[in-house]
C-alpha cells in the first residue's frame, strides 16, 4: 500500500464517477463506468485484494460493461440529464 498511489487512484475514481453520472451521452457514460470499474480494480490490487481485483476486472469491467452497452444499443443514446 503506497499512499501517493492510493491518492491518485482515488482522485481518478472520483473523476470517473462524477463524469459517469453527468455526461449526457449514455454510451460515453457507460464506457466511463467501465473505466471506473477498472480503476477500482487497480485500487484493490494495491490493497492486496488480488482475487477481488481479478473478479472485478473480469466480471464488472468486462461483462458488466458489455451488458450496459447492449442496453444502450437496444434503447436510446441521448439522455436529458
Amino acid at each position: 500500500m503506497i499512499l501517493p498511489l492510493d491518492f491518485i487512484l482515488i482522485l481518478f475514481v472520483f473523476i470517473c464517477a462524477v463524469a459517469a453520472i453527468t455526461i449526457k451521452d449514455l454510451l460515453s457514460a457507460v464506457v466511463i463506468l467501465g473505466a471506473y470499474s477498472f480503476l477500482m480494480c487497480l485500487l484493490w490490487t494495491e490493497m492486496a485484494a488480488i482475487d477481488v481485483a481479478f473478479t472485478e476486472a473480469s466480471v464488472s469491467a468486462s461483462i458488466g460493461t458489455v451488458l450496459m452497452i447492449g442496453c444502450v444499443a437496444k434503447t436510446k443514446r441521448r439522455s436529458k440529464d
Partner: peptide, 24 residues
Amino acid sequence: KRNLIKKIIGMNIFQSAIILFYIS
C-alpha cells in the same frame, strides 16, 4: 437522475463503493 440508465450507473457506483469500504 430521471434517466433509467443513469440510475443503473448510480446503482453500480454505490455498490462498488460499498465493496471498496469492505476491502479497506
